[in-house]
Computed example of a mutant assay.
Amino acid sequence: MPTTLKLEAFLPYRLSIASNAVSDAVASAYRNLFGLRIPEWRLVAVLAEGGAMSQQALCGRTRMDKVTVSRAAIALAERGLIQRGANPGDQRSRLLTLTPDGWGLYEQIAPKALEFERRIFDVLPRAEQEQLRAMLERIEAAAGALQSGVD
C-alpha cells in the first residue's frame, strides 16, 4: 500500500475524472441536440423510469444536491417538460411528473443515450462491461457504508 498520495493513481480521483469525461461528452451532445444540461436530463430520465417524485426523492435518486435539482426542475417546468402536483403524502412538497412534451423528449433522447453508452463502452468487451457494472455497484455500496459510518 503506498504511503504517499499520487493523484493519478488515486482511485477516487480517477473515477471522478472518468465520470467527468463521460458526462462532458454526453452533455455537449444533449445540449446541442436537445438544449438540456446533464442535471435536467437526469431528472427527465429518473421521472420517466420512476414516475412522480418529490424533489427530495429526486436528490436521493440522482445523488445531486437540492440546489442543482431545484434549478433543473425550474428549467424543465419553464419549458413545459415537467409539472408540479400535490403530494398526498406530504402537503409541504410537490410531486414532479413528466408532461406529454417531457415524455416526447425522453422518447427522443433515450435511444441516443443508449447509443452514446454503446459508443463509449465499445472499447470494453461485453464481459468487462458487466464486470465494470458489478464493480461500480460494490464501490457505491462501500462508499455508502463509509458515509453511514458502517465498516
Rank of each mutant, 00 (worst) to 15 (best):
L11R: 11
P12N: 04
Y13K: 01
R14T: 01
R14E: 01
R14V: 03
R14I: 01
S16C: 13
S16G: 10
S16I: 05
I17K: 08
A18P: 01
S19M: 09
N20G: 13
N20D: 14
A21N: 09
A21S: 12
V22G: 01
A25C: 08
A25H: 12
A25V: 04
A25F: 12
A25Q: 12
V26E: 02
V26F: 06
S28K: 13
S28Y: 12
S28C: 11
A29T: 10
R31G: 08
N32A: 15
F34D: 05
G35H: 04
R37M: 13
I38H: 04
W41P: 00
R42D: 15
R42V: 11
R42Y: 12
L43Y: 08
A45M: 12
V46N: 02
V46P: 01
E49V: 05
G50I: 00
G51H: 07
G51R: 05
M53S: 13
S54F: 10
S54G: 13
Q56T: 14
L58R: 02
L58D: 02
C59N: 07
C59D: 04
R61A: 15
R61F: 11
R61Y: 10
T62A: 01
R63N: 10
R63F: 12
R63I: 06
M64H: 03
D65E: 14
D65G: 15
D65M: 05
V67C: 06
T68K: 06
R71V: 05
R71Q: 08
A72P: 00
A75M: 06
E78G: 07
R79S: 03
G80Q: 06
I82Y: 02
Q83P: 00
Q83N: 07
R84I: 03
P88V: 14
G89N: 14
G89L: 15
D90K: 07
Q91V: 14
Q91P: 14
Q91D: 15
Q91M: 14
S93E: 15
R94N: 14
L96E: 02
T97I: 11
T99K: 08
P100Q: 15
D101H: 09
G102I: 09
G102W: 07
G102N: 08
G104V: 10
G104C: 11
G104P: 11
L105H: 07
E107N: 12
Q108K: 15
A110S: 11
A110L: 13
A110N: 06
P111V: 04
P111W: 05
A113P: 03
L114R: 07
L114S: 06
E115T: 11
E117N: 07
R118L: 15
R118T: 14
R119P: 01
R119T: 07
I120C: 08
D122W: 12
V123Q: 12
V123G: 11
P125Q: 06
P125D: 13
R126F: 12
A127E: 13
E128S: 07
E128P: 00
E130G: 00
L136H: 01
R138E: 05
R138Q: 06
I139V: 03
I139S: 00
A141D: 03
A141I: 01
A143H: 02
A143F: 09
G144E: 00
A145Q: 07
L146G: 03
Q147N: 05
S148F: 05
G149K: 01
G149W: 03
D151N: 09
